[in-house]
């Protein structure tokens, strides 16, 4: 609808100063007088725009600056340098009108009150966000239905499992229909089935309400399943921003060739086709140039006792691992 991007981040930097202290009593004493300070650039000159309704994956290794960026975006942290504009608000001012339009789910923190059932927390949020009865009921019914937690919402929070609690955290964070949703590691610690359910929910939610969503995750699967666009940061710097499928092609121009043999084949024979990544007795995986894939495959079929042959893209997870190991 509006042409200006919903989220605009320009040259964002966020530095922390940390005190270094070596272990031991002696250094404890010296640090009383002189504490060496070190500046950590948690986020360093990062810029990006996000349009309304986009679902963006935000990834990077531990300590890359993902959470720091999200905290800057939500107004929890004051940026050291740079400009952030969200729905034309400056997050740091923490204006009520701004706070009403964002929702934040943090996988490791909870807003649900521990001793009471989740629905009481929802009611509290209803009061805080001044949601009228009708809208509240519709919204709650939708979320309960989508997340399948009819029973759970009336059980004391402390008695819920982590997965059930996470679903309820989602309800609490989305009950006021935020236009912008930050999801920081929402699937952390959950089992595979629960991860899938949460993923489905996020996808449907994005489609249904056209909410702008930024998702960080450790699990590549989350991002792969949900996001078209990917932002990678490492050591505080923007490493990649673009289409997830382009990343696959862009970062590596290789494909994986998996071969199954009738009888054992010597290593030397295989290595001439490309880099051997996996080698078992009757099975081998070879990394080959994307462009030459078909010719190499044909050649291998001719020269080797092959019973089965499979060509596939390198899994994104592996691609990114290679990026960060460089």
């Amino acid at each position: 609808m509006s042409k200006t991007p919903t989220i605009q981040v320009k040259n964002l930097s966020r530095h922390f100063s940390v005190h270094d202290k070596k272990p031991g009593l002696k250094s404890s004493i010296t640090s009383l007088f002189h504490r060496p300070k070190r500046i950590v650039k948690a986020v360093n000159n990062v810029s990006f725009d996000i349009k309304e309704g986009e679902l963006v994956g935000f990834i990077g290794p531990n300590g890359a600056g993902k959470t720091t960026t999200l905290k800057c975006l939500s107004g929890l942290l004051y940026p050291t340098k740079g400009k952030i504009s969200i729905l034309d608000f400056n997050p740091w001012q923490r204006k009520k009108e701004f706070l009403r339009q964002i929702g934040f789910v943090m996988g490791q923190k909870n807003q649900l009150w521990w001793d009471i059932p989740p629905q009481e927390t929802f009611l509290l949020n209803k009061a805080i966000y001044e949601i009228d009865n009708k809208a509240y009921k519709e919204r709650l019914d939708f979320l309960i239905d989508a997340l399948d937690i009819k029973k759970e919402i009336s059980i004391q929070t402390r008695k819920l499992s982590l997965g059930q609690r996470m679903k309820c955290e989602f309800v609490a964070a989305l009950i006021h229909s935020p236009k912008i949703v930050f999801l920081d590691e929402p699937t952390i610690g959950l089992d595979v089935v629960m991860q899938d359910k949460i993923r489905d929910f996020i996808r449907d939610y994005n489609k249904e309400f056209k909410a702008t969503i930024i998702l960080t995750s450790h699990y590549m699967k989350d991002v792969q399943a949900l996001c078209k666009r990917l932002i990678i940061i490492d050591k505080g710097k923007l490493y990649y921003d673009g289409d997830i499928s382009k990343l696959k092609n862009g970062l590596t121009n290789k494909k994986l060739l998996t071969l199954t043999f009738k009888e054992e084949v010597s290593k030397d024979k295989l290595e001439k086709f490309g880099k051997l990544t996996k080698f078992e007795q009757l099975r081998a995986t070879i990394l080959v140039d994307r462009k030459k894939t078909s010719t190499i495959a044909a050649q291998a079929l001719k020269e080797l006792p092959i019973t089965d042959l499979n060509i596939e893209d390198i899994p994104l997870e592996q691609t990114i691992k290679e990026v960060f190991q460089r």
Binding site: L76, R94, L99, I102, F104, Q111, Y129
Partner: peptide
Amino acid sequence: LKGDYDLDLLKPL
């Protein structure tokens, strides 16, 4: 200490 106060700061309260 648990960091839950973050989530309170995000509310219009």
